[in-house]
Amino acid sequence: MITRDIAAFLELARGLAPDFGPATARAAFLVAPDGFSLAVQSAADNKYMAAAEAFDAERASAQHRALHRAFAAVLPTVCFAGDPQTPDALFPNNVFATAPGRYVVGRMRHPVRQREAARADIRGFFGQTLGYREIDLSTQSHPAELTGALVIDRARGIGFAGLSERCDEEGARLMHDALGLRATLMFDLAPGEYHTNVVLAVLAGRTAILCPNGFADPAVVEAIASLYAPYAMVASASEHAAFVGNAIALSQDTVWMSANAGRALTAESRALLAAAGFEVGTVELDAIEAGGGSLRCCVGEVY
Results as ranks from 00 to 15, higher is better:
Glu170Ser: 08
Ala89Asn: 09
Phe243Leu: 07
Thr139Met: 08
Asp121Lys: 05
Gly300Asn: 09
Pro212Glu: 06
Met108Asp: 02
Met49Gly: 06
Asn94Tyr: 11
Ala161Trp: 03
Ala8Asp: 15
Met186Leu: 14
Ala27Phe: 07
Gly148Ile: 02
Ala25His: 06
Glu53Asn: 10
Ile288Cys: 10
Asp217Val: 01
Ala73Ser: 15
Ala72Glu: 15
Val105Met: 08
Leu12Lys: 15
Leu227Thr: 06
Met257Phe: 03
Glu289Ile: 00
Cys298Ala: 15
Cys79Pro: 04
Thr98Lys: 13
Leu67Phe: 08
Ile122Ser: 04
Ala219Tyr: 00
Asp253Tyr: 07
Met186Lys: 00
Ala51Tyr: 00
Ala242Asp: 03
Phe20Ser: 00
Gly293Met: 09
Leu137His: 05
Ala155Val: 06
Leu130Asp: 06
Leu38Ile: 12
Ala183Tyr: 02
Leu185Tyr: 05
Gly281His: 05
Ala274Met: 06
Pro76Gly: 03
Ala117Asp: 01
Met175Cys: 12
Leu265Asp: 04
Ala249Lys: 01
Asp56Lys: 01
Ala241Gly: 12
Leu16Asp: 02
Met257Ala: 03
Leu273Phe: 03
Leu272Pro: 10
Asp177Cys: 04
Val280Ala: 05
Phe20Cys: 02
Leu265Pro: 10
Ala99Ile: 07
Leu163Asn: 02
Thr147Asp: 13
Thr98His: 12
Ile209Trp: 03
Gln63Arg: 02
His110Thr: 06
Ala229Leu: 08
Phe126Lys: 01
Gly300Ile: 07
Val74Gln: 15
Gln63Ile: 03
Gly82His: 07
Gly101Cys: 07
Ala242Gly: 05
Glu289Gly: 03
Gly21Asn: 12
Ala247Val: 07
Gly124Val: 03
